[in-house]
Nucleic acid binder design. Structure first.
Lengths: 123, 123
DNA sequence: GGCTTTGTCAACCTGTTGGTTGAGAAAGGT
DNA sequence: ACCTTTCTCAACCAACAGGTTGACAAAGCC
């Protein structure tokens, strides 16, 4: 058992690690497009773009419908939610820890240097 | 010119594509740890974990201080912010588009089947 | 000074990624 | 029927990723 959401996150993060694929996502956010349309601006073969789209599809970031011989690619927002949920969880924790550490350091500084006036021992 | 934030996102997403590294992040969210401590639970050499930490470090997800011969690893929340910003932007757009399409389809359905009663032509 | 602890660096191996080209499948157009 | 358009599949290749082991650097401890 490898936990399904682990596998989904593996694929999703890996998919978005490639700048070409992030660019595809950005463009698809503006509307569906065919593989040919997607490939047009890049200096790269159609097959290469087709592969990229396949990676996005297997990551669940994108779906394809069938319209005659065209196969319009459609951005699917769902997995994005899973990703941000993961990231934000640990970001919150890290920031929380940072905040507390900061407070602790502030207290320590106060103890060490109570008022900055009169450092002489009263005893 | 390759755009600096593109390169940072490449590294950040790639770093989190590996489940071991995501696990490291999860554990570091609970507190700083040394490489040795981090490596302990895994069935993997210390060197391998050291490499993973290095990847996280180069992705800017983690920093290291120097405490004698130990080098405690510390989770840094900043890049996470960059990632969620990227993801959420396109998620919002995709959902917005979906919402509008949905509305459009609803209107079309209404036009085609006004009340569902009386489909006969009035002419 | 020598030993221990903690971690990195270098070389190596294997599987995966991201690109290429060439062939061909699938659906329509004429 | 044949041609065109759109796209995928297969084979190949160079580069990279993630693991291994072995050597060694750096900072205490005795």
């Amino acid at each position: 058992m490898v936990d399904d959401s682990t596998e989904r996150l593996n694929r999703a993060f890996a998919a978005l690690a490639d700048p070409t694929r992030r660019d595809l996502v950005a463009r698809l956010a503006g509307g569906d497009a065919t593989v040919g349309e997607l490939a047009e601006p890049y200096d790269m073969s159609l097959q290469a773009v087709s592969k990229h789209v396949k990676v996005l599809e297997e990551a669940g970031l994108v779906t394809r419908s069938k319209d005659a011989q065209r196969r319009p690619v459609h951005l699917d927002a769902e997995v994005f939610g899973l990703m941000t949920k993961w990231i934000e969880r640990y970001r919150r924790e890290a920031e929380e820890r940072y905040r507390r550490l900061d407070a602790l350091l502030a207290r320590m500084a106060d103890d060490e240097e109570p008022t900055h006036t009169d450092t002489r021992d009263a005893s």
